[in-house]
């Protein structure tokens, strides 16, 4: 499981970066960013996973005393929650930018979205 998650996460990250580096359309670039972000989250969770363990929620099946040896690491799970929300916020703002940029220049081509010859 862990290996698959980690490899998959890494692959997602690389694909995301590839998209950010090569796609012309800013929506696609943002999608690339999203992939990159998602890949990170996958890696995060994957890294916290321990073999044959369960979610860290104490209930009747999982008494407190045994918890430490039967649950996965709760920290990455907590972190990923935060990371996801942050990623969401960033993506939302990026999309808002994309919207505005499109409105002002009627194009989504990133190479055309720059001011003058930059000086």
């Amino acid at each position: 499981m862990t290996h698959i998650a980690l490899a998959g996460g890494a692959l997602l990250i690389l694909i995301g970066v590839w998209g950010m580096l090569t796609k012309k359309n800013i929506i696609r670039i943002i999608i690339g960013f999203s992939l990159f972000d998602t890949g990170l989250h996958v890696v995060l969770v994957g890294l916290g996973h321990l073999k044959n363990r369960t979610a860290p929620i104490i209930d009747s099946d999982l008494p407190r005393e045994a918890a430490a040896s039967r649950v996965v690491d709760p920290v990455p799970q907590a972190i990923v929650l935060t990371a996801i929300v942050i990623g969401l916020a960033v993506t939302a703002v990026l999309l808002a930018f994309a919207l505005k940029l499109y409105q002002s220049r009627k194009t989504l081509d990133i190479s055309e979205l720059r001011e003058g010859n930059n000086d």
Binding site: P56, I57, I58, P74
Partner: peptide, 9 residues
């Protein structure tokens, strides 16, 4: 909190 993740979060 029964949910450890929640207690962390």
């Amino acid at each position: 909190s029964a949910n450890v993740v929640t207690s962390v979060v």
